[in-house]
Write a protein that binds this DNA or RNA. Structure first.
Lengths: 226, 226
DNA sequence: AGCCTGAACATTGTAAACAATCATGGTTGA
DNA sequence: TCAACCATGATTGTTTACAATGTTCAGGCT
């Protein structure tokens, strides 16, 4: 996510990645000094990064207390889900432009990575490539602005899933992606849109807003020392 | 737009308001020291505000050169327009919930303010209330997350309109709002959605991406000295 | 025993001084 | 006359130290 300086981008990306892959649990405290050591940076830069991330609702700043990984409320969770569904579903129904050949190629490459991650049982890679598929799709059919919006929503969804995922369920089936691409190439917008709606509803149905685990994590074990 | 501290919110809001009402021209430089004096604040806080606003694409930070009011490129302009249209139109077609009685009441009040601003020939108030109408509508039919997204897009649209508005045209006709409310209360989603599409397309048709005026402004005359 | 209180510690927030970078205007030379 | 160049001033970027706030833990009181 575009920061100004290079080093800050690095740090922000590392934090976002940790959130995306659900290594960083919602509610975790993010002490400035500790982060500065982990990333071999200084407090000022960490501070800027945290402020930036707070704008994306990934981090919550509590004045006088510090920064924490956000814990979206059930209401916020529902709103994020609904917003993402609204945007992705309607973009597939009314794409700004149809899928180009090179776009399809990009998507296929990502699907190959997905398959590999699945074969390797690499959970982090699976989440990452799955998100990448959605983002690339949005970018091909829509534009950069919408892509950025969805990018933020996907990050927030990671927090939501970590918080509210019902155990015993296997969320996020990725077999849909194949069908989705076929429908898009066949220009069957209505069907593609409906499939996307089901796809996202599938994720929602795996959530349970009654429980709120407070699992906090220890940073240094999670954020690799650069 | 929610900042952490109170004073910073005040400053950010003042800047956003100036952008929204098109007093702050795209490209204007925003020197830290000068802003600090205008808002009787200090550089550190101004700096935080500018960083925040840069995350909303309202301000562009150029390393070593400082902060400037963003100048969206024609491409970015088109993308912002398209994104806003996508979201607003599809939300009206598939609202998350139907308009409540109190929601209608809120909208009516805003429309009254719009009428007053129109009667007074108060351009700033007209822009402000018009935006408020859209935002309230989105919030009633959708949720807070979508509202925040649209809020940012409306701000960016202010910059775009300032940059690319074709003169001799009267953009943003507000007579549509009345009809829109009627259609919504009658639960005529398809018609409401179509009207919104036309409404937003009307704005787009007033833009001309060929000219790029570089009008820069002087801050102290525009930002009231608190 | 449980809880309130207060002091010591740790962390965040703020300010100011310093360093680095960029815009400027004037000078020099062809 | 014009262009390139250097010196100067202004603005941004970074670091440091210090102030304010929150947290924790020990001790004493009820």
């Amino acid at each position: 996510m575009g920061s100004t300086a290079k080093e800050e981008t690095r740090i922000a990306d590392a934090l976002c990645k940790a959130v995306l892959e659900r290594r960083l649990a919602p509610g975790s405290k993010l002490p400035e000094e500790e982060l500065a050591q982990i990333f071999r940076s200084n407090r000022a830069k960490i501070r800027r990064v945290l402020l930036s991330l707070s704008r994306y609702h990934i981090v919550t700043l509590e004045p006088g207390r510090g920064a924490f990984v956000s814990r979206p409320s059930p209401q916020e969770a529902r709103d994020v889900l609904a917003s993402r569904r609204l945007i992705e579903v309607s973009l597939l129904a009314n794409p700004h432009r149809s899928l180009s050949a090179e776009g399809a190629e990009r998507l296929r490459k990502i699907m190959a990575q997905e398959a590999k991650a699945h074969a390797d049982h690499d959970a982090a890679a699976m989440i990452h490539t799955s998100g990448q598929f959605h983002l690339t799709l949005i970018e091909e059919l829509g534009n950069t602005v919408i892509k950025n919006i969805i990018e933020e929503l996907i990050l927030r969804m990671s927090l939501i899933i970590t918080l509210y995922e019902r155990h015993n369920t296997t969320c996020c089936l990725s077999s849909d992606h194949n069908d989705l691409l076929d429908l898009l190439l066949a220009e069957k917008h209505a069907k593609a849109s409906a499939l996307m709606a089901r796809h996202l509803e599938g994720i929602e149905s795996c959530l349970d807003f009654h429980r709120e685990p407070a699992s906090t994590t220890i940073l240094s074990q999670i954020l690799k020392p650069v």
